[in-house]
Nucleic acid binder design. Structure first.
Length: 579
DNA sequence: TACTGGTGCGCG
DNA sequence: AAAGCGCGCACCAGTA
């Protein structure tokens, strides 16, 4: 691409901090340096906006939360970035990368993102990002050097194309995570309060327990014949149960539910209400919902498999009970989409298992398995397939897995191989090249000890147990991790499609979604295999189509022509309430 | 007072 | 008490 004055436009712009401002290096497509510039911090948003409009370069920066949160707050959106911290973490571990690659030695880039509670990292300009990596190098030369190491690692790897996809997808995810936070989940605090009041009873003005929660506690104490029984301390509750003749080993819901005793029903009720109160009660509402938005902190790459984690607010654990409080702004709609059986579909694609792909074609994958005759019911198909991906060995699930092995040898062979590799102490790799951690020192020591002549039976038992544990982990890693890659590709494609839709006029704007998204359909929520898009009513249908088209594009990007559809359930609604 | 580990439960 | 993977958070108890 060339600009009007004949000077080649930059394909990459690397950013770093410098005393008194920001320094930028503009690079050509082959990463040759074109020029450098010094920018005052306050002028950075407009400088970036100008370059974005001219050439949409890929912005290379240390850590998206440090750079992008404040840009979004200033009204600046970028199309592409390369997140050095996230890409370093992938390339350092990837089995595709040469063992001697310099990227493995640049340990100063190993920093984990700071959690929400940590002290604030030095910020760029009025930035209050809650997830910021601390201790990362932040100068321009540091960034240029690491960027060069990463390009070398990819170019010299056994599969540059896949690692380019993965680093691009991971970086796009970093942008999406900041955008999700900037836009927020549209949250109806009044609806939330109504759910709490209906379930727990009115909130007492002076603190204390709401009526229904207190009533449940009273009924429990009555049934225990112990007016002072402590219900929130597991050891105390367990002793009180034992005194009443309820001989359980734990106080978990599953074990209690099997007992017959007058205390069980009120106790389960109490636990349910107490959970709602402590996890998502009024204090959560006050702490996390402001101005009609829930703004959680997403942590891309926060899980070893490549899934996102979250930090603060429990964004990934919102109880279904509260989905009714997720409510579009007036004149806007929610487009809610989740992938049907993402992980089994990913497994079929990775393994090129055409039999499993046939079972998935045009329908519920579990029904397809039933139709193939491998198992009798949908529930059995689901339990068996989950068991195969998680490594179940006992119970109904363990009994059904061998039948899937016969019906789908390629898919089952892939996860069985991954498990064997893990048990043997090896590492496994996702479709695009994210590699599982190596075994810990303690794990390896336990395995060697078990092979020594003087090893005790206990040594051997422990080694075997740890080996099986690790096998289940690597078995699941390849599927969960590749599913995460599919989801990143879906998100990355979707954000582009949504941004390409025409913005609505000021009269339809939703200013609480922030300057970048107030007039545009935007992602509002993401949870592993589900997205919620917040869209102006007039663009809801277009947004739904974008969600579907992006899923198809993600499948093609990862798996080419392999004939497998990633089926979505999509609905357009005012609330995220299911059904 | 601040921490760590265990328990339990919410989500996929 | 989940069988079988991956998380975060609240709460309590024990310890430093």
């Amino acid at each position: 691409m060339t600009s009007t004055d004949g000077v080649s436009a930059p394909s990459w712009i690397v950013l770093g901090r410098a005393p008194g401002g920001i320094r930028a290096a503009l690079l050509s497509a082959d990463a040759a340096e074109i020029s450098r510039e010094q920018i005052e911090a306050s002028a950075l948003p407009s400088w970036i906006e100008r370059h974005e409009a001219q050439a949409a370069p890929r912005w290379v920066w240390s850590d998206a939360p440090q750079w992008y949160a404040s840009l979004l707050a200033s009204g600046v959106r970028v199309a592409r970035c390369h997140d050095l911290r996230l890409c370093h973490a992938i390339l350092r571990e990837s089995a595709f990368v040469d063992a001697g690659a310099a990227v493995r030695g640049s340990t100063e880039w190993d920093a984990a993102p700071a959690s929400a509670g940590d002290e604030k990292a030095p910020t760029l300009f009025e930035l209050d990002a809650a997830s910021v990596a601390t201790g990362l190098p932040d100068g321009l030369d540091d960034a240029l050097a690491e960027f060069a190491r990463q390009r070398d690692a990819i170019a010299g790897s056994s599969d540059p194309a896949r690692l380019r996809l993965l680093t691009a997808a991971e970086s796009a995810g970093a942008l999406v995570a900041e955008e999700l936070r900037a836009a927020g989940v549209p949250w109806d605090a009044a609806a939330h309060d109504r759910i709490l009041t209906e379930t727990l009873g009115a909130r007492p003005a002076g603190g204390g327990q709401p009526a229904r929660l207190a009533a449940a506690a009273d009924r429990v104490r009555q049934a225990l014949g112990d007016p002072a029984a402590s219900l929130d301390s597991q050891p105390k509750l367990l002793r009180a149960l034992h005194r009443s003749g309820v001989l359980v080993e734990s106080t978990s819901r599953w074990e209690l539910a099997e007992q017959k005793h007058p205390v069980i029903e009120p106790l389960l009720e109490y636990k349910k209400l107490a959970r709602l109160q402590s996890a998502n009660g009024w204090s959560w509402l006050e702490g996390w919902v402001h101005d009609g938005r829930f703004r959680p902190v997403y942590v891309p790459g926060g899980v070893v498999t490549g899934r996102w984690a979250s930090s603060g607010g429990g964004a990934l654990q919102l109880p279904r009970q509260l989905r009714e409080a997720v409510r579009a702004d007036p004149g806007w709609k929610l487009v809610i989409a989740d992938v049907a059986q993402l992980e089994p579909r990913v497994l079929a694609s990775m393994a090129s298992d055409t039999a499993l792909a046939t079972a998935a074609r045009g329908r519920d994958l579990y029904e397809g398995i039933v139709d193939s005759g491998a198992v009798a019911t949908r529930q059995q198909a689901k339990i068996a397939l989950l068991g195969a991906m998680y490594g179940a060995t006992t119970g109904e699930s363990g009994r059904l897995v061998p039948r899937l092995r016969r019906a789908y040898p390629r898919a089952m062979g892939l996860v069985d191989d991954a498990a064997r590799t893990g048990e043997d102490g090896g590492v496994v790799t996702t479709w695009l090249g994210r590699t599982s951690p190596r075994p810990s020192e303690a794990w390896s020591a336990a395995q060697s000890r078990a092979t020594e002549a003087e090893a005790s039976g206990a040594d051997e038992m422990r080694a075997r147990r740890w080996a099986r544990d690790r096998g289940r982990f690597t078995r699941n890693f390849v599927v969960q991790g590749t599913a995460a890659e599919w989801a990143l590709s879906w998100l990355a494609d979707l954000r582009g499609r949504l941004y390409a839709l025409p913005p609505v006029g000021d009269a339809q704007a939703a200013p609480r979604s922030g300057p970048v998204f107030a007039r545009r359909p935007h992602l509002a929520f993401f949870l592993h295999d589900e997205v919620i898009v917040h869209a102006p009513e007039s663009l809801a249908e277009d947004s739904a189509r974008a969600v579907t088209d992006a899923a198809a594009a993600a499948g093609r990007l990862l798996f080419g022509d392999f004939p497998l559809e990633f089926r979505l359930d999509v609905r357009i609604s005012d609330t995220a309430l299911k059904d």
